[in-house]
Design a protein around this nucleic acid. Structure first.
Lengths: 190, 190
DNA sequence: TTAATTCGAGCGAACGTTCGATAGAACAGG
DNA sequence: CCTGTTCTATCGAACGTTCGCTCGAATTAA
């Protein structure tokens, strides 16, 4: 059973790819860069990753897996506002703790081609649908803002957070989640 | 005075660069692509643009110029909420009407190097400061959310809009601006 | 011995950029 | 009005580098 050794090196290669995609962008990061960061030769890297496109796909897919896990708890909560808060908290936590992974998802996912691109887009749609469902449950039927717009606005707030959030200045992530949900529900002038 | 002819071709080259940066991303768009789109040879393109980095810088700088112009009106408005609305409307209008330009700014600006990078970052900071100033004016002093977080949340809402906004489904841009400001001020459960 | 793992070397293609040549417009002096 | 000269605009061809990727051999582990 040598799988553990193989698996460990495989994960190392993925981690290196993720870090370099995040730092330089998919097209600017070369397989030579990634091999160097992973401590193997270029040919050695190809023993684990059959292509750069595949590396991108696996990295993004892994991130979706982790995002699903980070927000899964919200699915079992009945009370709408609490469920939304739990989702937002999980999403924000993941983004803050896995800056590189989320950056690749946001910026480089579209560099995927063919079937990879379609599969990743499908996962993104599914993830967005989950969030939209939670949003529509906290929204009054007669609101001035459609569920579409509300969900888009909430996702924007969340996904932009990595651009400015600093725990030193802005407090703990769980507090930020609470503030964002409060802002979303009642605005700043509440 | 042949400047008009020269200037026109220069702008053509910039427009082609902007469109291809937006479509493929800075690193994936080649100078050959841009030359082809502009209808000149590669060497001909270099008669107008001394380097790819310069092209990126000029494209981004031009976008900042246009963004400033699109939101300038808000600076002369005293009433805080109306000023914020005017800013948001100008910003959203520009994003929707100049999808490519704004996409380059959001995604590819960081591909700029050296002095270009620093100058563009300085402009972005300045633009963000302007918006933050408008936000802090509509915020009650004793709000539960800091001005930093509020401004970050608002900017997130706005900048994410190109990802989902469709005028057919979501109404006119000016209405969207009103809804976003209302959501920001009073939330969805107002 | 066999199978799993690693690599140096190199493939063809594409990259950003440059060079020398060329065609036409503009201008000078006769 | 003609002619020679300069300047503007343009291009084909190529430079050196880097790209994603592969091959055959070597090394290691079982």
């Amino acid at each position: 059973m040598q799988q553990p050794a193989y698996d460990r090196r495989f994960e190392d290669a993925l981690d290196s790819a993720e870090a370099l995609f995040a730092e330089k962008g998919f097209h600017a990061a070369s397989m030579r860069d990634i091999a160097g960061a992973a401590g193997v030769s270029v040919a050695g890297l190809y023993y684990y990753l059959p292509s750069k496109q595949t590396a991108l796909y696996i990295v993004c897919n892994r991130t979706f897996d982790d995002l699903d896990a980070a927000t899964r708890e919200s699915k079992s909560i009945k009370e709408p506002k609490r469920a939304l808060y739990t989702f937002v908290r999980g999403h924000l936590r993941y983004m803050v703790d896995n800056h590189s992974a989320y950056r690749v998802l946001l910026r480089d996912m579209e560099a995927a081609e063919g079937e990879f691109r379609e599969k990743l887009r499908a996962r993104r749609r599914r993830y967005f649908s989950t969030a939209s469902g939670l949003v529509s449950r906290v929204q009054p039927k007669s609101g001035a803002v459609s569920a579409r717009i509300a969900a888009g606005a909430l996702f924007g707030m969340l996904n932009w957070a990595p651009m400015w959030y600093q725990s030193k200045l802005d407090g703990e992530v769980d507090d930020l989640a609470g503030k964002m949900v409060a802002l979303f529900l009642s605005g700043v002038a509440s």
